[in-house]
């Protein structure tokens, strides 16, 4: 009995909304692109209009940073598929981050976050840039306290989660908004949905090359998101200052391995690679065509391809056909 009491007491320490409170929220169906699977939402953070709207406002709110200069949207711009065009984004005091900002398109489907896969949930991911001295460099408790003084935001927090704006609300609402960033309306998608004229002949030739045994691009860039989320060393250099997956696994064999990125809207997210070291799609294609730099851990699939100039153009044409123009022109709230 005492054990039971202790167990119950332990559970009560948590502050998740209880089932009765959850019943008060009006959940909505977020439309997913044609051909995309249903989104597996966390039970504690199923979407409501209020949660998404609050998250959208907070995502664009520079008060999240120590000096009120950097919001999530500063480095994740809609026009760039919610990435930016910097090799490393600019944080507080003009400091540069460690890695190239990734696109947030379709993060609702990602199994883990950061290029080393160190964080398991989108809600938890929100904490890291706030905390990072090179990004927002702020204290999430202080930020939440400050933002809870904003009557409008706090009333939205209560409507969204039944509580004042606090770290729980902040992390959950931003994650709820990010899960609505769904992109699946590119010419390639139209082609997959049966429109045979959605791709040009050059784009189709590039697609066939992309998914061929010869290039093996599609062996990692597979599935509806064009990534299998595997970690690979693709021979970017003889030495890796950023150890990639090894940073979180501690495994030497993970040195220089980074998560395979989705290629959706890839034309909008230059420069490329974890460090932004490849400036253009042409440089990326050239890298894979050359077979990369020798490294003990380089993936065996990265081999010299001897692609002709025409084939390289075809591959680029296919990558450009992965752009979803409607996604990058959606309505956005005013910047604070």
């Amino acid at each position: 009995m005492l054990g039971l009491v202790a167990f119950i007491a332990c559970k009560e320490e948590r502050v998740l909304p209880d089932q009765n409170a959850e019943a008060d929220f009006e959940y909505i169906e977020v439309e997913t692109p044609a051909g995309f699977p249903a989104i597996d939402y966390p039970m504690e953070n199923r979407p409501t209009a209020e949660r998404i709207e609050l998250g959208r406002l907070l995502f664009h709110d520079a008060r999240l940073s120590r000096d009120n200069t950097v919001s999530c949207a500063s480095c994740h711009l809609a026009s760039h598929s919610f990435a930016d065009n910097e090799a490393q984004s600019v944080g507080v005091d003009g400091l540069r981050g460690d890695r190239n900002a990734p696109s947030l398109a379709n993060v609702a489907y990602h199994p883990y976050f950061f290029m080393d896969g160190g964080v398991q949930t989108l809600e938890r991911q929100v904490i890291a840039p706030l905390d990072n001295v090179l990004e927002m460099d702020h204290d999430i408790v202080e930020v939440s306290d400050e933002l809870s003084q904003d009557e409008f935001l706090n009333s939205l927090a209560k409507a969204a989660y039944g509580r004042n704006l606090d770290p729980f609300v902040l992390t959950r609402s931003i994650a709820a908004y990010e899960r609505t960033l769904l992109s699946g309306d590119s010419p390639y998608d139209c082609y997959l949905q049966g429109d045979q004229f959605a791709l040009t002949a050059e784009e189709k030739a590039g697609m066939e090359l992309f998914f061929s045994e010869r290039t093996q691009c599609g062996s990692c860039h597979s599935g509806f998101l064009l990534t299998d989320f595997s970690f690979n060393n693709i021979g970017l250099g003889e030495e890796y200052l950023d150890k990639g997956r090894r940073r979180v696994s501690g495994d030497e064999s993970d040195n220089g391995k980074f998560k395979t990125p989705s290629l959706r809207n890839v034309a909008l997210t230059a420069p490329y690679m974890h460090d932004g070291s490849l400036r253009t799609l042409e440089e990326v294609i050239d890298h894979f065509n050359s077979g990369g730099v020798d490294h003990d851990l380089k993936d065996d699939r990265i081999q010299q391809l001897n692609l002709t100039e025409e084939e390289q153009s075809q591959l680029k044409a296919f990558l450009l056909a992965l752009t979803d123009k409607s996604f990058v022109t959606q309505d956005l709230p005013q910047q604070n």
């Binding site: 320490e13 948590r14 502050v15 998740l16 950061f114 160190g118 964080v119 809600e123 938890r124 904490i127 890291a128 706030l130 905390d131 990072n132 204290d139 999430i140 408790v141 606090d166 770290p167 729980f168 902040l170 992390t171 959950r172 979180v248």
Partner: peptide, 21 residues
Amino acid sequence: AQYPNDHVLGFTGNNGMFWSW
């Protein structure tokens, strides 16, 4: 975020004993 801020697993209460990355 799932705990009150001053809980030993909360943001303030963990006293720097949490890796955000």
